[in-house]
Every structure is written in C-alpha cells, then in structure tokens.
Simulated assay, not measured.
Amino acid sequence: MAKLVSKTYAKALFELAVEGQMVDQILAEYEFVKDSFDEFPEFLEIVKSPKIAVEDKKNILVETFGEKVSETLINFFKILVDKKRSDVIREVYDDLSVLVDEEKGLVVARVESVIPLEANEIEALEAKLSNVTGKTVTIDNVINPDIMGGLVVKVGDQVLDGSVKHKLDNLKHELAEIII
C-alpha cells in the first residue's frame, strides 16, 4: 500500500515538474532534502511523527528548507504533511528518481549473483540489456548467495531468473508431478 501511495505522489510531483520545466531542479532539490534526512534521521522521525502537529511540521519544513529549495517542492511537502503521508517522503524520492530516469531513457537493472560480476561482464550485460530495452541500462550488482549460481536480472517489472535455485525448484516441481 505504501508503495502505491509513494508512486502516486511521485507521479504527481513529476508531472508538476515537467509542466514547470524544472524536472532536474526538483530532483536535485529533493535529493538535497533526502540527504539531509539521511544525515539526521531524527529529523525525519519528527516530520513523520503523528505526535507533532501538522502546522508545526509544515513550519519546521519551511524553516529548514524554505530558502534552499523551490516553493514547488515546499508546497509538495506541505501536501504530504496535510494528507498525513509524510511517512512516504523517502520513498517518493526513490520513485521520482525512477520516473526521471525513465524520461531520460535510463534504466537501472538489478542483477543478483553469487559473486560480484567482473567489469567486462557488467559492460557486456549492460550492452545486451540496452539493446533489448532500447534504453541506456546500468547494472546494480547485488550479491545473493541464496541463488546458488547463475543470475537473476530485474529490469523494471520484468524478471529473468536464470539462477540455479530457480532451475532446481522447477525440476523439483516437475518431479513431484511425475510421481503423483
């Protein structure tokens, strides 16, 4: 549910940024805010806390970021606070980044492997995935010993599971059907 909420707000902010021709500016400003929350997590907890009054939260945000980010972004944060959705403030940034990358034709593919991929393997896989998707793909190589071998590639909503674990699970399922 929270993911759907954050995507909805991210899309609304993205459309507003496109309309105002300030996509890169909004993303950079939001990154600044996100980095501030990362550096001071207790500050994010104040903004998310149901114990703090809505007006106090909005005032804190304006006082903290009012001179550092655009009025558009401040107003967006005020809306999140008014709608009691400040709990997704970090997730909205992540979803907004994906939308901006998609607009620019950039995609990050999550590739799970048992051991880190070599630079030449990453390059070859990026080229192959870029060719298939028609977009510029960069690889986020994640180490996952549970897959036992092979690769699991996630590009957007698509998953290509070439892991040994997946193949063994399929074989186990097929054998179970034969025995019955």
Rank of each mutant, 00 (worst) to 15 (best):
L4M: 15
V5C: 06
S6T: 15
S6F: 11
S6H: 12
T8D: 09
Y9T: 02
A12T: 12
L13W: 03
L13C: 02
I26S: 01
I26N: 00
L27G: 02
E29G: 04
Y30T: 03
Y30H: 02
F32Q: 04
S36M: 02
E39L: 06
F43R: 00
F43Y: 13
P50T: 06
V54Y: 00
E55K: 13
D56S: 10
I60W: 05
V62C: 03
T64D: 04
F65P: 02
E67D: 15
E71H: 05
T72S: 09
L73H: 05
N75V: 11
N75I: 11
L80N: 06
K84A: 11
K84L: 14
R85H: 15
S86V: 02
D87P: 04
D95C: 14
A109T: 07
A109R: 07
R110S: 13
E112L: 15
V114Q: 07
A119G: 01
I122T: 10
E123N: 12
L125P: 07
E126T: 03
V132S: 11
G134M: 08
I139Y: 08
I139E: 00
I139T: 07
D140S: 08
V142L: 10
I147H: 01
M148I: 15
M148G: 02
V153C: 06
V153D: 07
V155N: 08
D157P: 07
D157Y: 09
Q158F: 11
D161L: 03
K165R: 15
L168A: 07
N170L: 11
L171N: 05
H173F: 11
E177R: 12
